[in-house]
Amino acid sequence: MKVREVVDILSGRIIVDNHDLDEEVPRGGAADLMSDVLAFGTEGMVLMTGLTNPQVVRTAEMAGINVIVIVRDKTPPPETLELARESGITIINTGYTMYEACGRLFKAGLPGLGQVKMRDNSW
């Protein structure tokens, strides 16, 4: 799915623009727990989250994620936007809830990770 389609499907607004809108994103994921993002995030995925603090951007950067969708139309603080600009991460705002944002993208054909198997029973 192209970044442009993600924006359209979510009736979203790009608030930090670091992308060519024709760039492809392979899958999506959602979390408000940053450790989950670090554990299950995959390279290039679109991250849906309700958090807006700068650590969301840092976490995404570490996990190799460069498109973040902030749900429920929350406005991130300036530090978050500034860090995203520096780190080459695009932030999209949408009025939908986390559930509905995910549902819309999934229905439109953006896959998730499938079933996650933890190899070492850690949690």
């Binding site: 727990l33 940053m34 450790s35 989250t49 949690w123």
Partner: peptide
């Protein structure tokens, strides 16, 4: 509230 402190950090590092 910031999305941390879930007690998964060390497990994640180990993994």
């Amino acid at each position: 509230d910031m999305g941390f402190g879930a007690g998964m950090g060390l497990a994640n590092i180990k993994r």
